[in-house]
Simulated scan of single mutants.
Amino acid sequence: MNELFDSVADGLVDKSYAIIDNFLTTDEVAQILTLPHFNQHEQLFKKAGIGKNADLQINEAIRGDYILWLDKNTAPPAAMVYLNRLNELIQHLNRSLFLSMKDYEVHMTVYPVGTYYKRHLDQFKKDDHRKLSVICYLNTNWKEEEGGQLRIYTDHDSFDVLPVAGRLVCFRSDVLEHEVLPATRQRLSLTGWILDQQIM
């Protein structure tokens, strides 16, 4: 696992992003997909909004996903495997890049067929504590023609990342704009942010 963590660190230093396959194994993804949450997302998840706290708005013209926040103290064991690995990644990045990341926040995410998230930056204008964005995909046997790519914009161009099961994408929340393209099948992920402050 240290080799994967090193690859994340190297990518962040060199390009401000890293794309790592097999961050979750096939079996670990399968265990997460057995959780009832994704199958009952219309009852358990909330429509995702834009902004934070008093500025939060629901706007389906900008984003169409549903989310369910994970609590690191009460998350089911299958999801806790990912949260623990993410915490290990944070400790590794702190040591290798001399960062001072303190915590993380993660939600389960469902994009129904045809939904998307327009181009945006993850760091809030009034709250800059989100430093790194982390997305781990849960979509088995995903094909390019099914869409659903994450499109990342760099200074000079853009590129697309397929939402393949077990793949982790990590990038600077304050630098890289990105969007989620519509797909022809439901798209699942664990989406979160690494923070420079402790969540109260």
Rank of each mutant, 00 (worst) to 15 (best):
L162Q: 05
F159P: 02
T191D: 06
P76F: 08
V106Q: 01
L138A: 03
L188H: 05
Q149H: 12
R167M: 01
C136Q: 07
A75Y: 04
Y82I: 10
N141R: 12
L188A: 08
I58E: 08
N87C: 07
P112H: 07
H156L: 15
L162S: 05
P182L: 08
A75S: 14
Q91M: 13
I90W: 03
L138T: 06
L83Q: 05
L70M: 14
H129G: 06
G166D: 03
C136I: 14
T115N: 06
G192A: 05
R95L: 15
V175P: 01
L150S: 04
H120K: 11
R187D: 07
Y137Q: 02
S100E: 14
G64K: 06
P182F: 00
D71S: 12
I67G: 06
K143H: 13
K72I: 03
L190M: 14
Y137F: 04
L190C: 08
Y117P: 06
S173Q: 04
S189L: 03
R130A: 00
I152R: 07
H156F: 15
L83C: 10
A183N: 09
E88D: 14
D160E: 08
D65V: 07
N84Q: 11
L70T: 07
L99M: 15
I194C: 00
L188N: 05
N73D: 11
E179T: 06
T74Y: 12
N59D: 15
A75Q: 07
A78F: 01
G64S: 09
T184Y: 01
V134I: 15
L93T: 09
